Amino acid sequence: MLLRWHPLQEVEEVSRQFDRLFHELAPQERETTKGGWIPASELRDDGDHLTLRLSLPDVEPKDLDIQVTKDSLSIAGERHIERRDESDKGYYWSEISYGKFRRVFALPVAIENDLVKAEYNNGILTLTLPKANEVKAFKVNVSSKLPASESN
C-alpha cells in the first residue's frame, strides 16, 4: 500500500510539539496571558554573592512575597491599577501592565538563604544573595619552612 506524504502536516505537528514544550517550561507565560506581567530582571555574580535586580515600578514593597531556598528564588507581587473606577474614560491608551506577577529563578550556585537581603529603591528591587561556603573560592596561603642551613 502506498501512502501519500504530507510535509506540511509534519511541520505543523513539530510546531505543536514545540509549543507544548515551551508552554510547560515557561509557566510565567501562562500567567501573562491571564492579565499578569513579567518584570525585567538581571542576575550578576559579585564574587562572594549574587545580586538579583528586578524592575518593579509602582509596586509597593508590602505587595511583594519573596521565598528563597539554597538553589532557587521565587518573587510574587502585584501592581495595582491606578484608575478610580470603570467610568474613568480619560485614557487614550495604556501600555502599562497591571495585575499579579510571579517569577521563579533557578540559581546557578547554592546560596545562604537565611542571609539574603532585600532593598527596594526607585522601583528597583535588589536582592543580595550570599554564596554558600561550599561554592565560595578561598585563598590558601602556602607556608614554607626552610632548614636553617639553607636560609643563608
Results as ranks from 00 to 15, higher is better:
28 Q>V: 01
64 L>A: 01
148 A>V: 06
61 P>E: 12
44 R>P: 00
47 G>N: 01
149 S>N: 15
108 P>L: 10
143 S>L: 14
32 T>K: 07
115 L>Q: 13
29 E>G: 10
121 N>A: 06
45 D>I: 09
106 A>N: 06
98 Y>S: 04
77 G>I: 02
137 A>N: 15
46 D>S: 07
88 D>R: 00
64 L>Y: 05
74 S>W: 10
85 D>C: 08
88 D>G: 00
123 G>E: 08
2 L>H: 13
137 A>V: 14
2 L>A: 13
96 I>F: 03
118 A>G: 08
96 I>K: 12
45 D>A: 10
26 A>M: 13
80 H>C: 08
81 I>F: 08
93 W>R: 13
55 S>H: 03
60 E>V: 00
57 P>R: 04
64 L>T: 05
39 P>A: 06
111 I>Q: 11
64 L>S: 04
6 H>C: 01
119 E>H: 10
116 V>Y: 08
55 S>R: 04
122 N>C: 02
147 P>G: 09
97 S>W: 11
97 S>E: 05
26 A>K: 12
53 R>D: 00
88 D>N: 06
57 P>F: 02
68 V>T: 04
78 E>I: 14
61 P>A: 14
79 R>T: 02
139 K>H: 15
147 P>V: 12
82 E>Q: 03
95 E>K: 13
112 E>F: 03
2 L>T: 07
126 T>V: 03
4 R>K: 13
61 P>W: 05
53 R>C: 01
14 V>R: 15
92 Y>Q: 11
87 S>C: 01
46 D>W: 05
75 I>T: 07
97 S>Y: 05
107 L>G: 09
67 Q>V: 01
11 V>Y: 09
135 V>I: 09
57 P>M: 02
88 D>Q: 09
135 V>H: 12
134 E>M: 15
123 G>D: 12
97 S>I: 00
85 D>R: 08
127 L>D: 00
70 K>M: 09
147 P>Y: 11
35 G>Y: 10
71 D>W: 03
18 F>C: 11
25 L>Q: 02
35 G>N: 14
73 L>V: 00
48 D>Y: 02
150 E>V: 08
44 R>F: 05
48 D>E: 10
51 T>C: 06
116 V>A: 07
137 A>R: 12
140 V>I: 11
44 R>Y: 02
145 K>F: 15
65 D>C: 02
47 G>R: 05
20 R>V: 08
71 D>S: 15
15 S>F: 14
73 L>A: 02
10 E>R: 09
78 E>W: 07
150 E>I: 12
34 K>V: 08
52 L>N: 11
114 D>M: 13
32 T>R: 11
136 K>R: 15
140 V>F: 13
22 F>L: 06
68 V>M: 04
149 S>L: 13
138 F>G: 10
131 K>L: 04
83 R>N: 07
